[in-house]
Design a protein around this nucleic acid. Structure first.
Lengths: 214, 214, 214, 214
DNA sequence: CATGAATGAGACTTCATTCAT
DNA sequence: AATGAATGAAGTCTCATTCAT
């Protein structure tokens, strides 16, 4: 850890200011939405001057897009780790799905600001930003579809006539549950989930495979 | 007093201009979001002058809230018509649920602008509008909860230990499916649903009760 | 009193609506100033419609001017009644002046809204209205000057080298005292004078002739 | 710390733009009144852009209040310098009062815009601004009262039964004379006083102590 | 005479962005 | 790299006035 506190001559610290700006912006976007967040507030929160923002970013919109794209990559990574290698029993499958969802929910809870922007506030932004957000959920659905197709391939799920529709419904379920679990009925960034990630994941996985009657 | 109530050749003419303004605003809010919609655009679309807007509404925010509250009432009305009177078989229940969802989905498809604002764009608005939108979904969930409790009472659904959680997940599923069905992956107001309301309702109802494995 | 309540066929009631509008406007002008008073408020206070205002008056400005000119005539009338016919002792003169001031102060107190507009709020209006207000005070000063010249003529006051200056100072004193007495330090229309008109008139008259040392 | 205080070739440069804006605003307020002065005119007169105004001030109202409060402090300072230390003859007192008034009148004439706003136009502004203006004259009267009480203490003036009333009348006299002297009968900012500050002060002081008969 | 919905010019204010230092 | 004063386009809202009924 030596040298960590020596600020003036740091080497790899390159984008420290940038990081602070990103974090500040993401928090504000998540809380107040894109349009209700002023650059002046972002820079104040990050402790830098107005001009500095424009040294690191081309503008408000471009910054938001960067934020979203960065989030997308990290999110997809989580889901792709659920990719199945071998076949197993139904219970295996439920457990496996629950594990994937647990990872997803934990990631989401550790990145609440990001998720709030992606799930809720992003749609209030400008067209380009909205597109970027939409692409996140397309990528998200793709990743899930890959998993479902793999499960069918391994004979663990029946050959649906319309896989896309099922995946569609499945993803709707997951994002719906995720949003409510994370932010509650009022979509409050400061809401504290009442269930653990594992609990809500297990319930969701059970529902996923067996429905209300299961 | 004869003749006093005979208005000059109109029946329930109400404030026609107000209706036009509401519609224009809702369409623009749905398409471009709250902040990207200018009053100047709304009045242009409605074919009235800027000042006229302020004759009928106190301001942009208040108008949006009125729009949301009006939508909430109509939406809840649809769901409450699904209230069950007698017990029946499981298939009855699935059918019944599918019917309710069909009604809901049809209503939604006939009020795409309203739904786009409630489901997607509303969260980009100002705090008071956001609150109003959140309240819509709370009311929505309440209405569903009433239906589920009734089904449990009639012995058609098991006594869940945590009804709220189940309803929560159920509502998440429904709004998730609804959003995707109506607006597609890109949240496009002009997206044309690929399934009919009845089809998606049936699939959703099946999933609701039996999950992926059903 | 017979017939008084038969409204539809009244004859000399001509400007009833106009009177109500004048009164309402004067009160609002006095309280809130010219620019902070909206025609919509005036008509609401008078219980008529917006259009009616424009049937009786050419516009806001013209109405204010009419109000001011009407007030001027009544105000000057009061002062001119102080015109002296015969010579008398110094005490006569002080008493006589006190009587005139008493009349003035009583008139002012009975027409608080008018005086508030003339003394205080009128200067915040538009140029033409301001001119009309200024002319009131010029007429006021003229009327006083006439009285002073008459007193000099009768040998009751010395031949000042500069009568205008003295009258000027005298009028400054009177309007200054009047304003404070009527509306208090905060220029509040609802202020209640702590002295009676006669008391403040006597004090002022004494000061007028003898100053602080008198 | 050497060198830290050496600013790049300026001495007390403060916010120069702010000064220009203040001056421009005060002049326009004085001439046209608060409501007839547009921010667009102020910034044009100051030679800056519209946005710059809002960099230095929170808004029109807040700026007007600042203007008034600043003026109040300077005005009171002038009067408090008249505070009497030793007793003296009646003539001393008249002279002393004339001196104080001369200072006051000179200050007023050097700050015609400020005085026009405080004496005349301020009452046409919005409530908060009006309050600020009223407070100026309350402070003004307080300062005079202190002087009068001191004179009584020194035995130079009799023990009035009601000092407040006398001071009230005195201040009414002074502000009345001041207004007329500065702005003439038409309350014209460009009016040129026909007497010097010393002349009008002397006349006023004589009137103050001896009245018309003096 | 009376109504009140409709108008539109123009006011204040916001805020993303620029640029000289 | 960093600052922060300056910009100006554009937005929301006000309100005196008009006019068809």
């Amino acid at each position: 850890m030596k040298g960590v506190l020596i600020l003036p001559s740091q080497t790899n610290e390159e984008p420290q200011r940038e990081q602070e700006l990103r974090q500040a912006a993401l928090e504000l976007f998540a809380r107040k939405g894109y349009h209700n967040t002023k650059i002046s507030e972002v820079v104040k929160a990050a402790g830098v001057s107005q001009g500095t923002f424009y040294w690191y970013f081309d503008g408000k919109e471009q910054m938001a897009i960067r934020l979203v794209e960065n989030g997308r990559d990290r999110l997809v990574e989580v889901i792709e780790q659920g990719y199945r290698k071998h076949a197993g029993s139904v219970d295996d499958m439920v457990n496996s799905s629950a594990n994937l969802l647990t990872n997803l929910f934990e990631f989401a809870n550790e990145n609440r600001n990001l998720m709030a922007f992606l799930l809720i506030k992003g749609q209030g932004a400008d067209p380009k930003v909205r597109s970027a957000v939409s692409e996140v959920w397309i990528a998200f659905e793709e990743a899930f579809k890959k998993n479902v197709l793999r499960a069918i391939e391994l004979g663990m799920l029946p050959q649906f006539t319309d896989v896309s529709l099922r995946v569609n419904i499945l993803v709707s379920l997951i994002t719906g549950v995720l949003t409510k679990w994370l932010f509650g009925p009022l979509h409050d960034v400061d809401y504290e989930p009442v269930y653990t990630a594992a609990q809500i994941a297990e319930e969701t996985a059970r529902f996923e495979f067996r429905g209300l009657l299961g």
